[in-house]
Design a protein around this nucleic acid. Structure first.
Lengths: 241, 241
DNA sequence: GTCTATAGACTGATAGAC
DNA sequence: GTCTATCAGTCTATAGAC
């Protein structure tokens, strides 16, 4: 079954793009269907030929971004290896992927929107993603890799950083997804991990950065030598397991 | 001129409390004045005896939380000492203070709400707070205390963690403000700092603020990156654009 | 200080011509 | 697939009695 119908209509695609931008700027509830229609260049009732209702626009944007993240997070919970490694890989993958999406998503993850009863299934999916993060953080605290922190608080902070990234991306086009993702992953793991040198090793193994031959498990931090600008990571990696 | 009128009426206070809770749950725009009135136990038009309009309720909540934070952040920018110390102290103070406030504030810092033209002055204040954070982060990157990161991205992540805290607090009453604040400050500085041992020292010295360091505490390098030179760490790897 | 009643504007969505 | 016209519901805020 071809699942390409979603993108057949160019108008449909434009609705998604413009709606995402408006949701970011004015919020989901603060954006009227008339505003969306005007941005697309049609009259308001024409929207309802492409989407059943306003909520369907939001739901399609949610499906694009949330479903893959949830699957990846769940995989990280049960995968093998140190939890710091698994969480780092997940966050790096998640942020890099989000930074590559062609939609401004920061308006659709507002806490209040996903709590609307009509969006309960999506709220449940986000809650499942958060539960996976709490699980990972709890693992790390128990194993001693992470500093002690309430898993719920750690999860909230990780989610906060993720949301800050999708908002930052929408306001700063042209950034390198790999670089942004690496910065976010380093921030989060640095915030959680007890041993910072172990973080350096995580980063070093994540992908060869230009001009910085890894000094192995060196005694001191590898004075990171990413050259000006260009440091790009081949996007092949990222998936654990 | 007594300025105590703000709290004289118990009803006025209850409006603030209930409105904050509803703003968190349904968002500012998703909360109707009828809902607020019902939560308070009066009819909708009675609200307008205590507040000129719905927006005034939001503005009073903003004033309570945003004004002090902005003042403190600006002070941190120009204060003396290592920037890691100043940022740590600011974040610790900010989070602890926010956790002590008797209002659920996470609904009023949604990006879209503060972008409303009618709230432009408050949007400008928040932007000024963010500018101070960018300044601090830039200082830390240049001095070598922080890992290289685009100041705008670092600021976004710090703000994201802060927002996650006020949301966490609203959902988990009874937590110790000092403990939560310390966890958040450690997370943020751990995410930013290059040398984790220096973070341990920050946390250990957290109590006395600016000027009364315990005498025998730090035999290690104490005056590291302070001063205009920023001579502490090799200053290579400037970040591109 | 709270109430009833209501104004005035905007909302999402539908009907039906082309 | 887009349009015009329009409905029915909801919103904030005001007027004025008590």
């Amino acid at each position: 079954m071809p699942r390409t119908d979603k993108i057949t209509s160019s108008t449909r695609r434009r609705i998604l793009t413009e709606a995402a931008l408006l949701f970011r700027r004015h919020g989901y509830r603060g954006t009227s269907t008339r505003q969306i229609a005007e941005a697309v260049g049609v009259k308001q009732p024409s929207l309802f030929h492409h989407f059943a209702n306003k909520q369907s626009i939001l739901e399609e944007l949610l499906a694009i971004s949330l479903d893959p993240s949830l699957a990846e997070a769940r995989e990280a919970v049960t995968a093998e290896g140190p939890v710091a490694r698994r969480l780092y890989d997940y966050v790096l993958w998640d942020l890099t992927t989000l930074h590559r999406l062609p939609f401004a998503l920061s308006g659709i993850y507002a806490h209040d929107v996903l709590q609307e009863p009509a969006l309960a299934p999506w709220g449940a999916k986000l809650e499942a993603l958060y539960a996976a993060l709490r699980d990972l953080i709890g693992q790390g605290v128990r194993s001693g890799e992470f500093r002690p922190v309430a898993p719920g608080l750690g999860q909230a902070m990780v989610a906060g950083v993720t949301l800050s990234h999708i908002d930052y991306a929408a306001g700063h086009t042209g950034g390198d997804p790999d670089e942004l993702g690496a910065a976010g992953a380093a921030f989060i793991l640095g915030g959680l991990m007890r041993d910072p040198e172990a973080l350096d090793r995580l980063v070093a193994d994540a992908g060869p950065r230009a001009g910085a031959p890894p000094a192995g498990a060196g005694p001191h931090r590898r004075a990171g030598g990413d050259g000006p600008g260009g440091a790009s990571v081949p996007s092949g990696r990222a998936r654990s397991a």
